[in-house]
């Protein structure tokens, strides 16, 4: 459905030293620097897949999304989405994709979202009956029945985001590009947006490619993740695969009924954190069973929790490794 091979994008960036003298100098003599925003990445996404697209700021995520949606021409490499070359921006292609970004909005500021919906109906040439049916479904799922008739400028960020999603889905796209869709939303709204995206994907079989810095988004939505850093692909696989690869250790939180001195924890595993009546230790996944048994036998345990290291930490470690590899 989506296939990307050796995709590369270079930008020419005007480079200038600080200071007035340098600024004046750059008036007639400019130095350009070529920046590799995306550097030889390849992957493919099957119909119905939900993929998280992760990376630190400036990694090339948005640039890649723009190339996939036809807003940017690649410097080299090939992209195919639903059998189309995005850069050609054919009507058929544009009618079957959508892009929503948490940072920018397409809703008409002065008018209620219902007017944007109507505009999109005309632009996508949707049949009125079909449009009405789709809209009714979206209104129900996103709970925007009264919100959509208030002027956009009076809506809260969350209300606006749900209406953005509705506006972008009226033509029932088969590929969804979502660029930080939950940014700035409160926990409830995040839940609504996540739940909705998942449901749309399950009901329509559309593919979803989502960028986010919120690991809860990724954990809730994306069985598979692609990680890029400095324009290069550094991981492509399942979320659990990433955790296993980066952090094969489990993290065990112990709570004690009485004070426990540090010495008594020795032999259990690496101690990450310790207080009088609690401790966090890190244990290789294979040894978890033995360690837990030992802990119960030797320590005054009242509560125990074994889990994977937090995703943020795992990713931070992955980025750090990629930085080292570059250096």
């Amino acid at each position: 459905m989506i296939s990307v091979s050796h995709l590369t994008k270079h930008y020419q960036v005007h480079k200038r030293q600080p200071g007035i003298a340098q600024a004046l100098r750059s008036l007639w003599k400019r130095q350009y620097e070529s920046v590799r925003a995306v550097d030889d990445i390849s992957f493919s996404i099957a119909p119905g897949e939900r993929v998280g697209f992760l990376g630190p700021n400036g990694a090339g995520k948005t640039t890649t999304l723009k190339m996939l949606s036809g807003l940017l021409h690649p410097t080299s490499g090939e992209v195919s989405v639903l059998g189309h070359v995005p850069a050609l921006r054919s009507r058929e292609f544009l009618s079957s994709i959508m892009l929503v970004t948490g940072q920018k909005q397409q809703l008409i500021w002065d008018l209620p979202p219902a007017e944007t919906f109507e505009l999109n109906r005309a632009i996508y040439g949707l049949d009125r009956a079909v449009f009405k049916r789709t809209l009714d479904e979206l209104v129900l799922a996103l709970r925007i029945d009264d919100v959509m008739f208030k002027p956009t400028r009076q809506l809260s960020l969350g209300e606006r985001m749900t209406c953005e999603l509705a506006a972008a889905l009226l033509h029932r796209p088969r590929v969804l590009f979502l660029d930080e869709p939950t940014i700035g939303l409160d926990v409830t709204m995040q839940g609504v947006v996540r739940g909705f995206i998942k449901r749309y994907n399950e009901e329509t079989g559309a593919s979803v490619l989502l960028t986010s810095h919120d690991m809860d988004d990724v954990a809730a939505l994306c069985p598979r993740i692609i990680v890029i850093d400095h324009g290069r692909l550094i991981f492509d696989g399942t979320l659990s695969g990433l955790v296993e690869q980066q952090r094969p250790e489990k993290r065990v939180t112990l709570r004690f009924g009485e004070d426990v001195v540090a010495a008594r924890l020795q032999g259990l595993g690496r101690v990450v954190d310790q207080a009088a009546r609690s401790a966090v230790i890190q244990v290789p996944a294979g040894e978890l069973r033995g360690v837990v048994q030992k802990a119960f036998a030797e320590l005054p345990i009242v509560d125990l929790l074994a889990e994977n290291a937090p995703l943020e930490e795992v990713l931070a470690e992955l980025f750090a490794k990629s930085r080292e590899a570059r250096a």
């Binding site: 036809g70 544009l94 959508m98 397409q106 996508y124």
Partner: peptide, 18 residues
Amino acid sequence: RKGTLDFLLLKPADAQLL
């Protein structure tokens, strides 16, 4: 300047008309 022109270019209609 705001980058919202992208939304227009993503529509399956003539961008100049829009």
